[in-house]
Amino acid sequence: MSEGLIEVRVASVADVAPKIREFRFTPVAEALPPFSPGAHVVVEMPGAGKTYRNAYSLMSDPFNPENYGIAVRLQDESRGGSVFMHTQVKEGDVLRITPPANLFAPHWAAKKHILLAGGVGITPFMSYLPEMQRRGADYELHYLFRSEQTGAYRDELKKALGERFFSYDSDAGEKCDVRALLAQGAPGTHIYICGPESLIHAVKAEAEAMGVPAGFIHYEEFAAPKPGKPFTVKVASSGQEVAVSADDSMLEALEAAGVEVTNMCRGGVCGQCVTRVLEGTPEHRDDFLSAAEKSRNDCVMPCVSRAVTDSLTLDL
């Protein structure tokens, strides 16, 4: 994971909502590579005793990235990453990030794009919007937030997008009628959702009930790995045994023990870290393996999944 990382300097830190802090990164050496709308980077956070790695969407204009912007919501059940970003990272600090990768690119063949952001889920759309405007794309942004916690950039978005901007502040009792939103969809209207699992599920369920094919609904959720009961991972090649504590993910525990596992999104989406299981039963928590693959229990995504059994032997 350490190869190919980019060193960046924290050029600015700003609070953009009660629980959201924005960081702007500038390059230490070479210019930052351009990226595509919807791309993210993984930020390495050297905490005391533990290195956190979280994926954050890039908010800059993708084709003119003088700096990379990310926004971090202080999570109520933080595993340490968002607390580290909020309390430890200061202007002038140097951090390491992965090059940009994209699992949430716009479907440019669409005739209309409906962007649905929940809270800090506004971030990937911040890189969509400049490109949508450049291409003259037909789009709407529907922004759901709680003004007591989130809702970053809403004033500037309202000003920049005008009639294409719709906001719903649930702390002010404003609700988004997902059904009505889907019902207006003519063929070629694609929906993009970034936000909490509950929002994604609500839209998917509504679409299914209305007979709107799943291929029109695109979503991204960087769910942090949730805690679970501790277990042991056995590395087949070396016989090494690695303890996975309740709060660590299997991937983090392996990395801390010096075992390299190819990975990218660290959120159970991209499929890069898929690893063969030789013994034991995994507890699948990812969004990548199909139901059939999960039921075979012969592979696992160490970034988010855990073990049902006390130990899991991996083909590493």
């Binding site: 003519a186 063929p187 209207t189 094919p213 799943a214 291929g215």
Partner: peptide, 10 residues
């Protein structure tokens, strides 16, 4: 059909 905005799933 895809030019009209429908997708292959349909």
């Amino acid at each position: 059909l895809t030019d009209a905005g429908f997708i292959s799933d349909q």
